[in-house]
């Protein structure tokens, strides 16, 4: 599904923000991505979301080496990836329904089907009564749920979420984590960037952690032990 081999990344002529990343995400896996602020989590997510290309090394997504992808092939690859941005990036002039419908409309889905699927999903995330509301009128948690609904509406093969439950009350956070788990059970590979140790502890999925621009992986209990030892 996803393979990084000695991947490095830099912005322009700047220093490397990611160094020698080696990673393999099997199809249907569920990982947490964590690390201190500035460690390179966002950059790693950008590589996964096909927003940037690696500066060096090999990044393989869905069996294709990213640097060898032609520009016209990128949209089809991106439609297999769902992204939940940390700052939501909702389109403020569109309704909740239109925001969530965006990936389906871009893919050219039938309007009737779009309406059916989007309203169903919005009901599920608790935004049924707000289908016509515009993002500026929604609370932080509601915006985040709209962003998550947009990312999962077209059943992506890879779901990337940057702090997806950060602005929510714990109950809604858990509800959405269960949604991610359900998608994962259906075969979606999930990577969730988070600082929330409670979430890592509760769901016990493997942890990828970035330190000094390099990626390490461990089981969640190992990571939590190590975290507590180092903070003592």
């Amino acid at each position: 599904m996803v393979r990084f081999e000695n991947v490095g990344m830099r912005y322009g002529m700047g220093p490397e923000v990611l160094r020698d990343i080696n990673l393999h995400l099997a199809p249907g896996s569920f990982h947490f991505l964590t690390g201190p602020t500035g460690a390179g989590k966002s950059s790693l997510l950008k590589l996964l979301a096909l927003s940037h290309r690696p500066s060096r090394g090999l990044l393989t997504l869905f069996g294709q080496e990213v640097n060898s992808l032609k520009r016209e092939d990128l949209p089809a690859f991106r439609r297999k990836i769902g992204v939940v941005f940390q700052e939501f990036r909702l389109l403020n002039h569109l309704s909740t329904l239109d925001n969530v419908a965006l990936p389906l409309r871009i893919a050219g889905a039938d309007e009737e089907q779009i309406y059916k699927h989007v309203t169903e999903l919005l009901d599920w995330v608790g935004l049924g009564p707000q289908v016509d509301a515009k993002p500026p009128t929604l609370s932080g948690g509601e915006k985040q749920r709209v962003a998550i609904a947009r990312a999962v509406i077209n059943r992506p093969q890879l779901l990337i979420a940057d702090e997806p439950t950060g602005s929510m009350d714990p109950e809604m956070g858990l509800r959405l984590m269960h949604l991610f788990q359900e998608l994962n059970k259906l075969g979606t590979t999930v990577v969730i960037a988070t600082h929330d140790l409670g979430l890592i502890k509760r769901f016990s999925n493997p942890v990828l952690y970035l330190k000094d621009s390099t990626l390490y992986s461990s089981r969640s209990d190992e990571y939590l032990d190590q975290y507590h030892r180092s903070s003592l």
Partner: peptide
């Protein structure tokens, strides 16, 4: 630029 990036990452083609 920001909306264009969202559209791109949502799978929009350049022509769209």
């Amino acid at each position: 630029q920001e909306i264009i990036e969202v559209l791109h990452l949502t799978g929009a083609k350049d022509t769209y």
